[in-house]
Every structure is written in C-alpha cells, then in structure tokens.
C-alpha cells in the first residue's frame, strides 16, 4: 500500500472511529479543533516540509479567512460558505503579492517578512473597529449546512456536525497535499529544498515554485481560519496573533514537517495538551519554545519520521 493511501485511511479511520470512545460531547469539540489545526498545519507541511521555507505569519491568513466569514456575508451579501472561498482567494492574493519579491531572496527573508505581515494583519483587525469591531471580536453567521441536513431528515447535533465536517475538510486537505507530494510540482518543491542550485540547473523556476507553495499554504491557513470562525460563530483578532503563527510552525516541526500524518500528530498533541494540563496556560510559551528548540536539535525530521526510522531500523 502506498504511503498516500495509508495516510488517508488512517486519517479517515481516526475521524470515524474516535467518536465511539468519546465519553462526552465536549470531545467532539476538541476533535474538531484538532482537525482545523491539522488543516492549517498541512499547509505548513507544503511550505516548510516540501519546499523548505519558513513562515512566521501564517496566522495572518487564518485571520483573513476567519474575518472574511464574518464580514463578507454582511457587507457583500455572500453566503458564509462562499465567504470562506472569498477569504481563501484574498489570502492567496496577499500571499502572492507579498511573496513575489521576497521569495527571490535568501531563506530567512520570508520568515521576517511573513512575521511582519502577520503582525500587520492582526493590527488591522484589532484597530479598524468600524469594520471589525476591534479586539473584542465579532459574530459570524451560521453556515446553514446543519439546517440543510436537517431538512433532508439527518438530525445531527451542532458539535457533532462540526466534528465530522472539519474532519472531512481535513481529509480532503490531506488528499490534496499528498497528491502534490508525488506530482511534478511537489517533486520540484522537494528538489529545490534538497539543493536549490541543482533544482535551477534542471530547469526549475525556483522563485515561482516557492511562491506557489507559499500561496497554497496561505489558502490552507485561510480555510482553517474560516472553519474555526464558522463553527465558533464568533472570531477575535487573536486568531491572527503571533502566538498562533508560532503554534502552527511548532505543530508542523513537532509532528514532522515533511509528513502529512506528522502534521496531524503535531496538531493533535499541541491541541490536546492545554485541555489536559490546566497549568499549561502559564507555561504555554515556555513549552512551545522548548519543543521548537529540542525537536530541531535532536529530531530534525520531527516525531513521526524519526519514530518510523527507528521502527524500520529495528526490523532490519
């Protein structure tokens, strides 16, 4: 069985089977949060794991996606679902505009520029109160899918609906990322990660491909932001905050930035941790920082690939 098929089967099985072990409704909520985060982190896998570029501002795109769902239905009359797509297009457009000059330059420039971009988006969301209602947040209209299901006779609780819907979107996101991995574009991205100069010599337009990865990953983050806003029916500028960007990167490198299943693992660990450890709140930054440093020093490939290597080594 190919890695791709195995990954998709495992993810689908997790979404479907886990509810049988849920002691209460609350777990659906945690589950859907994990799926949303995993979706965003899958985008980071494409950018960082495949193409080897670092963004420290992807929460900015989540912010754009989230606020698109809050604002576009009111101001543009868009259906909330369409608003999510509108947000994704907007995020992709911003990523394209900002990424184009930057991705021609050396590695750390993207990290710095995206850090600035994320801060800028968070700033706009918090300060332009006439539009966004400021730091306290704004309510988001209902997606309406739940009602539509009810109309055709499927009665499902709201938390459960969002659990399965987020799970579905995550699996589709994983499928696309896995398609990309083995496609000519994905191969070119991994090639330029391996050796930029050799990639250029075989005819790969390095700047253009990096830009594609950046735009795609921005769309993932944006859709994750939209999903979060739609299921909470509320959103605050925190979604675009610097710490959220850092969380995304940490989830990716923890699980294994090169692996879609690793993205899920990283998202699952760092999403459940605060729920399990109530003291986590106070130590969150310390823990995130430690995880980032330790993983990069001792397990550069991340948890999942390192473990897989160890298991394979034992078999031999």
């Amino acid at each position: 069985m190919t890695t791709k098929r195995a990954t998709l089967l495992i993810l689908a099985a997790i979404v479907i089977v886990s509810p049988f072990f849920f002691p209460s409704n609350y777990y659906y909520r945690v589950g859907s949060l994990i799926f949303v985060n995993a979706l965003a982190v899958t985008g980071i896998v494409i950018l960082t794991g495949y193409a080897g570029q670092v963004s420290l501002g992807h929460a900015g795109f989540a912010g754009i996606g989230g606020y698109a769902c809050a604002l576009a239905p009111v101001h543009l009359g868009l259906h909330p679902g369409l608003a999510a797509l509108f947000g994704a297009a907007l995020s992709g457009g911003v990523a394209w505009l900002v990424g184009r000059p930057i991705l021609r330059l050396r590695g750390y420039y993207l990290a710095v520029a995206s850090l600035g971009l994320g801060i800028l988006v968070a700033m706009v969301l918090a300060n332009e109160a006439w539009l966004t209602r400021g730091p306290d947040g704004i309510e988001v209209p209902d997606l309406g899918l739940n009602d539509a299901l009810e109309a055709i006779g499927i009665d499902i609780r709201n938390t459960q609906f969002w659990y399965f819907f987020s799970g579905l979107v995550m699996v589709v996101g994983a499928w696309i990322a896995l398609n990309l991995h083995d496609s000519p574009t994905g191969r070119a991205l991994r090639a330029l990660h391996g050796s930029e100069i050799a990639a250029r010599v075989v005819g790969i337009d390095v700047a253009r491909l990096k830009l594609r990865a950046f735009v795609i990953s921005a769309v993932y983050a944006s859709l994750a932001g939209s999903l979060l806003a739609l299921q909470n029916k509320f959103i605050t500028p925190d979604v675009a905050g610097f710490m959220h960007s850092i969380e995304m990167v940490t989830m990716a490198v923890l699980g294994g930035a090169g692996s879609v299943l690793g993205a899920f693992l990283g998202a699952a660990i760092l999403t459940t941790l605060p729920q399990v450890l109530t003291v986590f709140q106070e130590y969150e930054q310390i823990l995130l920082g430690l995880v980032m440093m330790l993983v990069m020093i001792f397990m550069r490939e991340g948890l999942l690939p390192s473990l897989a290597r160890r298991v394979r080594g034992r078999e031999k």
């Binding site: 080897g52 670092v54 990290a111 490198v253 930054q285 920082g289 430690l290 980032m292």
Partner: peptide
C-alpha cells in the same frame, strides 16, 4: 539548514519570553 536555525532562535525567543 537555515530553516532549522530560524525555528531554533524563534523557539529561544518564545522560551525566554515565557
């Protein structure tokens, strides 16, 4: 690689902050 070094110093920054 540069990627890892960026993540390490960002990690250090978050850690010191915390």
């Amino acid at each position: 690689p540069v990627v890892s070094l960026i993540i390490i110093t960002i990690g250090a920054s978050i850690f010191i902050r915390g």
